[in-house]
Amino acid sequence: MEDTIFSSLSRLAPQLVEGGETIEDLQRLSGGASMETWAFAVAGPGRREEMILRRRPGGPIDEDASRSVSLATEAALIVAAHGTGAPVAPLVHLAGPDDGLGEAHITRRIAGETLGRKIVTDPKFEAVRPSLARQCGAILAQIHSAKADLPLKTVDFLGELERYEAVYRQSGAERPILELAFQHLKKHAPPPVEPVLLHGDFRNGNLIVDPEKGVAAVLDWELSHYGDPAEDLSWICVNSWRFGKAELPVGGFGHYAELLDGYAAGGGAEIPLSRVLRWQALGSLKWGVMCLMMYASYATGAESSVERPMIGRRVSETEIDLVILMENGL
């Protein structure tokens, strides 16, 4: 596999970088069975550029049936976001049928940290941390201003709630707090708004953070869709990705007011905190249901890793957060 990728990339080298001749340091970074991420460098006389290859070895997905977008759509999203000035890892190449890479795209590799826990605790980020929430607000305002006409789904609050409730019912689980949250959010759904382009998975963990510049790139566009701006603003506030810094609701590094001020200053609409909090509660509820499903994939024998059943014990973290959000007057 590695040999095939190496030779395909070697043929592409002159196209990826002007004067590019060879591929160096090809290395698999991560990924499961459905998506691979590789790092490599293109080198030529007097130059060397670091790049990232993302590829789906199983071939293109059915965009209608899946929540994820194809890598071709993801590439178009990166280009659209880049056009608004939002920080992304710029697209270098979308693989074609003759490239021998299958469904794949290549972007620049942006330096910085992606591990959420490090971003919220490492002293290296102390100076930049207080500005991150405002920066995230401004970046979301940029992304939401994109005028891209792409084959994406449109999601609204009640539709999303219904989708996850169906998954929960199917699982057969009986969890009073999740049940209460479904019913409560159904009664207190925020009124629908004109949909905008959303990142769809904007959270601490999908950001590359530079110790000096702050957010250097927004990664992982595969869950992008059209919807309520408050959905993107709230997902980064879900307590499950504050990495122990619960008192800093935005990603474990900032406050709601900073995020919302940054959003408005960046040209976004004024969004009331109550709207963000309801979407945040829906976010916790969704993560709770996802954890139940990861346990279910173990219980049915579909997955055997020790990781899966253990994630099932993370449902209770979403339950305690949901109870407190409701006590707080959601």
């Binding site: 307590n239 504050r242 122990g244 810094k245 619960a246 008192e247 014990r313 993370r314 209770s316 973290e317 305690i320 957060d321 407190i324 959000l325 707080n328």
Partner: peptide
């Protein structure tokens, strides 16, 4: 489940 979890 997670005694060190810092809740909302």
């Amino acid at each position: 489940d997670q005694p060190n979890y810092a809740p909302e």
